[in-house]
Amino acid sequence: MATGYRLSLWVIDMFAYLIRRLFFVVFVVWGVTFATFFISQVVPADPALAALGDNAREDQIKEFRERNGLDKPAYVQYAVYMNKLLHGDLGQSLRTSRPVIDDLREFFPATIELSLAAFFVALLIGVPFGVIAALNQNRPPDVIVRILALLGGATPVFFLGILLLQVFHAQLGWFPGPGRLDPYALTPPRVTGFMTIDTLLAHDPRTFWDSLYHLVLPAVVLGSASAALLARMTRGAMLEVLSQDYIRTARAKGASNSAVILHHAAKNAALPVLTVLGGLLGGLLSGAVLTETIFSWPGIGRYVTTSASSLDFPAVMGVTLLAGLVYATINLAVDLLYAYIDPRIKYG
């Protein structure tokens, strides 16, 4: 009886919390639209001239402004945009005249695929290295990990990308060049936009391997900074936990070294690491601009750079909205997960 009561209280608590958080997400998304719109208004630049160029005639410019509503006052433009947005319409790109939603659909899967790969690279490298460093505090493995972490965090993505392409692709030939597939490969029909999945759906294992193979270098480049951060975080968290009383108690009770690390230390050290993971994934999803440029990756990062340089406001707005949503959702997910792992945390 008591347990049932507590459970239902917990469910009510969590539900109320979720509602509050979802309300917050809506607020964040509205803030994003407002800020983006405001910035687009103060930037001294004319989208019509940017789209039509030097040779455009006055009547063409006028027609462009009217067609895209740019001749109306800013607050009217904003109201029109928000009204469309509430009806699920992200508008048309000024540059390509294509619905922004189609562009997002086309380019976002490539970014998700790359970001997830980079995320796994960061996890696979960052966490074990952090643990190794912590267990060997101030000994050579720790020093090496710390130096690598420093390098990984400080090397510009652009430089690292070109370096890896030059060494591992052009010189050694171990990894393929830029792009998602070999230039001579038969691209599978587009179903999900995820190359790894689409190649499998097309029953083409050879191209599937090729798509995985093409993911390695860009994922390493994109994930390196995150791996460095994770290694530092994990090391710090492990050291903190290893100095706790209960670890000493566990050791005193005769638990083996590996049992202490795996059962007692790792789980507790995971908590602070988990908080950064969400932020990392969000950062990867929205921060892939340079990696996508170097590796000719047809993702959202490249789309937004091209759009921004041609002052394509609806396109930029679409991407910022998407990024805002992704961040808010990941943060929410992390918070829920956090409370699940650590029973001391209550929703409230």
Binding site: R95, F168, W174, D182, W209, D210, L212, V216, T306
Partner: peptide, 30 residues
């Protein structure tokens, strides 16, 4: 690298002398 390369297969689906690959910044194509 090598194992993935073997998986990907050296000979891809298209004939290399009858297909030409032209690299460039084609971003302006709308």
């Amino acid at each position: 690298g090598v194992s993935l390369a073997l998986g990907a297969g050296l000979a891809m689906a298209q004939d290399r002398t009858s297909t030409l690959i032209y690299g460039g910044d084609w971003t302006d194509l709308i």
